[in-house]
Computed example of a mutant assay.
Amino acid sequence: CGLNSFPNGVCFLSSSLLGVYLTELGCEDVKLISANVDVDEYPDVKSHAWLEVEGKYVDITASQFSERTNARITVQNKCAAEWLFAYAQAARREGTYREQKPDLDNCLSLYNLIVSKVKCI
Rank of each mutant, 00 (worst) to 15 (best):
V37M: 07
I33M: 04
D40S: 15
V20G: 01
L25D: 09
S14P: 03
F12A: 13
V30Y: 04
N36R: 15
L25Y: 11
V10G: 01
D40A: 12
V30F: 02
S16T: 05
K31P: 06
Y21G: 01
N36F: 13
F12Y: 15
K31I: 05
L25T: 08
Y42C: 09
D40T: 10
Y42I: 09
D44M: 15
L13H: 12
E41Y: 11
A35H: 03
G9I: 02
L18E: 02
D29Q: 14
T23H: 07
D40C: 09
L18K: 00
Y21I: 07
A35V: 09
D44W: 11
E28G: 12
S14G: 06
K31Y: 02
L22G: 00
E28R: 11
C11S: 01
F12S: 08
V39I: 12
E41S: 14
S16E: 07
L17S: 02
Y21C: 06
V37A: 01
V20Q: 00
K31T: 09
L18D: 03
L25C: 12
D38I: 12
V10H: 00
L32V: 11
N36I: 15
L13S: 05
V37K: 10
K31V: 05
E28H: 12
V37S: 06
S16G: 02
V20F: 02
D44T: 12
L18C: 11
L18T: 02
Y42T: 06
G26A: 11
L13N: 01
E24Q: 12
D29Y: 10
C11Y: 06
Y42F: 07
E24S: 00
L13P: 00
D29V: 03
N36T: 14
C11M: 03
G19T: 04
D29W: 06
D29P: 07
E28Y: 06
G9K: 04
D38G: 13
